[in-house]
């Protein structure tokens, strides 16, 4: 118990040190307070340890916003929009299929997604067509494995449609 208290006080101490450091920013390096985001896909690294202000992620338990010094946590992602607010205030929206977001103790956030594209690159027409296709497979007498795949497709397309309608 006392050890626990000790660690919490220690953590508070390190945090105050971090706060003190913000005052004297150094060149090139990301400011100490900023959240370091790595948003990576198998074939492309969109952000790699770059400093951002806020990231909103579609966690499976509900949407959540992550700011700097967030508590360490692991979140499974559902299909949805990852919103990145960069340090200059520029907002980038990416639609991710699924993946995992992990906030580490060292103020870094890593998002491993299987696929992600800028939201504005999707066409609503194609989404509707895909949605209809998935529905058709589910209604048909296809094997169970195919139906399960179609159900996942349906989830993604519905999320995509909702995101585009906003």
């Amino acid at each position: 118990m006392s050890a626990l208290r000790l660690t919490s006080s220690f953590r508070a101490a390190t945090r105050s040190v971090a706060a003190a450091r913000v005052a004297r920013r150094t060149y090139a390096d990301v400011a100490d307070g900023a959240l370091k985001l790595s948003l990576v896909l198998p074939h492309q690294a969109i952000y790699s340890a770059s400093g951002v202000t806020q990231v909103n992620i579609p966690a499976s338990t509900g949407d959540m916003g992550i700011l700097a010094n967030h508590v360490a946590s692991i979140e499974a992602l559902r299909p949805g929009v990852v919103e990145v607010i960069e340090e200059g205030g520029k907002v980038n929206k990416w639609f991710v299929s699924t993946g995992f977001a992990t906030v580490h103790g060292n103020n870094s956030l890593t998002i491993n997604a299987v696929e992600a594209y800028p939201l504005e690159q999707f066409s609503l027409e194609a989404v509707r067509a895909g949605l209809a296709e998935a529905n058709k497979v589910i209604a048909s007498s296809a094997p169970e494995a195919e139906k399960a795949e179609a159900k996942i497709e349906l989830d993604v397309f519905e999320a995509l449609q909702a995101a585009l309608a906003k």
């Binding site: 492309q44 580490h104 060292n106 491993n112």
Partner: peptide, 19 residues
């Protein structure tokens, strides 16, 4: 080129195990 991107992906995924 593919390797450079995949390495970044692997490192991001591995960070949890390192921590």
């Amino acid at each position: 080129r593919a390797m450079r991107e995949a390495k970044k992906y692997g490192t991001a995924s591995n960070e949890l195990f390192n921590e």
